[in-house]
Amino acid sequence: MAKFSKWLCSQLRLIGATARKEFIIFTRYPANAVLSLIEPLMWLTPLYFMGKAFSVGGHAVGFEGFTGTSDYFSFVMVGAFMSSYIAVAFWGMAYSIEEDMILGVLEPNWVTPANRVSILLGRSIMFALLTTVQSLGVLLIGALLFNVKVSGDIFVALLIIVPMLIAIFGLGLGLAGIVLAIRRAQTAIDMSNWVFSQISGMQFPVTVLPKPLMAVALTLPATYGYDAVRSVLLGTNPLLPMKQEIMILVTSAIVMCIVGRAVFYTFDRRCRRLGTIGGH
């Protein structure tokens, strides 16, 4: 027991140190912080007007037939809020490997006795915290400018997000292993992050997708996360009963963490064997 608590303390110190390092880097680029608030709004504003072009008196009458809500932009804002966490897995976890390779610090960090998964976790926890602040800012601005209304139980919605986040972190860990092996992954990450968010239903209900794409969407845990959170906050019609969606999310969280860890260590061992960690 004492051995375990000592190990846990050292891991927490490591996670804290990595998170602190990320925060210091973030504060060195204040322009990026401002841009991180403006840029999502630039992407979201066209969706507001697009929704308006299909609406009568602010009600998206056609959209209501698919989802049960006529408030298209609130639907999109909740989707965008949750998509920002998917970006944490793809950019904060997976791409951070390539970034360290470019900066030339991957090998020096990797040869320390520090746990590699904890290093990645520290980064992604800081990314997730910064993303939360940024997304809340965007939601607040959205509420002021575009009359976004979220009326449901926010606490229940947050509880639903937790297993989705853990599942996504598991996915990020697996992807980090793949990036370690293929080394140049920026384009693949950019594209897969975007497709993952879209196909999970960031800006539309997955029921409008053609059947093959819908089948893909239904295998992704994020689809159920988006659906359940929207159902709680906006009163949309859920794909499945809420209990089933939560069960799927919890199971995905466990499975994806185990699979993600296994994939990461498989590629990590391979890279050590081939001696490719220093190259990029």
Binding site: A53, F54, V61, G62, F63, G65, Q198, F204
Partner: peptide
């Protein structure tokens, strides 16, 4: 393609949104 899916959702199953557009 994904923007087209969004417009299809906005148009609705009965195309009532499409008529407004």
């Amino acid at each position: 393609t994904f923007t087209v899916f969004a417009t299809q959702a906005l148009a609705g199953p009965d195309n009532s949104g499409g008529e407004v557009f």
